Computed example of a mutant assay.
Amino acid sequence: MDRANKPKTLPKLSSTPGLPPQPTVNFTDDNSRLRAELPTGESVEVLLYGATVISWKDATGDEKLWLSEAAKLDGSRAVFGTAPDHPQTKDLPQHGFARTSRWEFLGKSTSESMVGRAADEPTVKLDFGLSSAAPGLDPKAAAHWPFKFNLIYSVTLNRESLTTSIVATNDDGATPFDCQVLMHTYLRVKKSPASPTRPTPTKSARRPLPPKPNPPPPSTLTITGETDRVYTPTEDAVTVAENSQPRFRVTRDNLANVVVWNPWAAKAEAMADFAPDDGFRNMLCVEPGAVGGWQAVEAGDAFEGAQTITLLH
């Protein structure tokens, strides 16, 4: 699926005189990543290895995501760090092969070609693909995942939000397969870890799954130590506060769970790919996903899920 001679800069979809400026998409010289920028200055950067969003900036250049200074961006390791008891996935890489494979960039859409609200504001949508036939597929996945599949991952940027969505299609004829999905989003916060607030969940759990049952947490969770939990909220939106001020709203679509993770001091220091050691004070993972169990995808069917992170001022 990977094209050998991709252009470094994708042309605008239209050059008709009188049209407002359109978003641009540029590849790096080594074709390892691409950067999309709205005409108003907001930008997003995606590493093709894992189709990993590694930067999201507002019009002033203020970064909204946290990225470890020790993260490997050369494809040697997943940027963000198995299920040994699950027969279909027990031999796959940690966190799954979608994060350890090189995805193909399928193209862009802009507000000029969209309908509805997206057409009324600067918007760019980037589509990435990975399939069982893709040359970028992790070799370990190809050896231990016998099912035919097709994944489409989309990243949509507008002035106030970032949306990521995935469609996982089972192309394997008559054989169903199981999957899990987690949007690994490391939000950048200032001074100290934030406090995600949300409606009282119906269920909470520690990872790894299956968990021991825990009582539902309060509607406000304050991070004061190592935190690694799976929640099942009753409503779709979670608010992430920074120093008691709302900063992000994370909205889920067809993703039942939210993982909240912060390694805190001891674990951060012990992790080789987490830097600086005190970086835990400036980041918080609030990750929508479908990880409370396995999602069965029947032959010819698909699983879809999405998240939207909205800036709050």
Rank of each mutant, 00 (worst) to 15 (best):
K6Q: 14
P7Y: 14
L10I: 13
K12D: 13
S15Y: 05
S15V: 12
S15R: 12
S15M: 06
G18F: 01
P23F: 01
P23Y: 01
P23T: 02
P23D: 05
T24Q: 04
F27H: 08
T28C: 07
D29L: 13
D30T: 09
R33D: 00
L34S: 00
R35S: 10
E37Q: 15
P39D: 05
P39H: 06
T40P: 03
G41L: 06
E42P: 05
S43W: 08
V44R: 01
V46T: 04
T52K: 07
S55A: 13
W56V: 00
W56K: 03
A59T: 14
D62F: 15
E63Y: 11
K64T: 09
L65M: 07
E69R: 09
E69M: 11
K72I: 01
G75C: 09
S76V: 08
S76Y: 02
S76E: 07
R77I: 00
V79L: 02
V79E: 02
F80Q: 08
T82L: 09
A83G: 15
P84V: 04
P87A: 11
K90N: 12
P93V: 08
F97G: 00
T100H: 04
F105A: 01
L106A: 15
L106D: 12
S109K: 06
E112D: 11
G116V: 07
P122A: 06
D127L: 10
S132P: 02
A134W: 03
G136M: 12
P139V: 04
H144W: 08
W145S: 04
F147G: 07
F147P: 03
K148C: 06
K148H: 10
Y153S: 12
Y153P: 04
V155N: 03
V155E: 06
S161G: 09
V167K: 14
A168T: 11
D172I: 04
D172P: 00
L182A: 04
H184R: 08
R188T: 11
K190S: 12
S195W: 00
S195P: 00
S195I: 02
P196W: 04
P196D: 08
T200P: 03
T200W: 03
P201Q: 03
T202L: 03
T202Q: 11
S204I: 02
A205N: 02
P210C: 09
N214C: 05
P215M: 14
P215C: 08
P215K: 14
P216S: 13
P216A: 15
P217W: 11
T220D: 08
T220I: 14
T224C: 09
T227P: 04
V230Y: 01
P233S: 12
E235G: 13
A237Y: 00
T239G: 05
A241C: 14
S244T: 11
R247K: 15
R247Q: 09
R249I: 08
R249Y: 00
V250Q: 03
V250P: 03
R252Y: 06
N254I: 00
L255E: 04
N257M: 08
W261H: 01
A265M: 14
A265I: 10
A266D: 14
E269M: 13
E269A: 15
A270F: 08
A270G: 13
F274P: 08
P276A: 11
D278H: 09
N282H: 14
V286I: 14
V286A: 01
V286N: 07
E287K: 04
G292P: 04
Q295E: 15
Q295D: 14
V297E: 03
V297F: 07
V297S: 02
A299K: 06
D301A: 15
A302E: 09
E304F: 10
T310Y: 00
H313R: 15
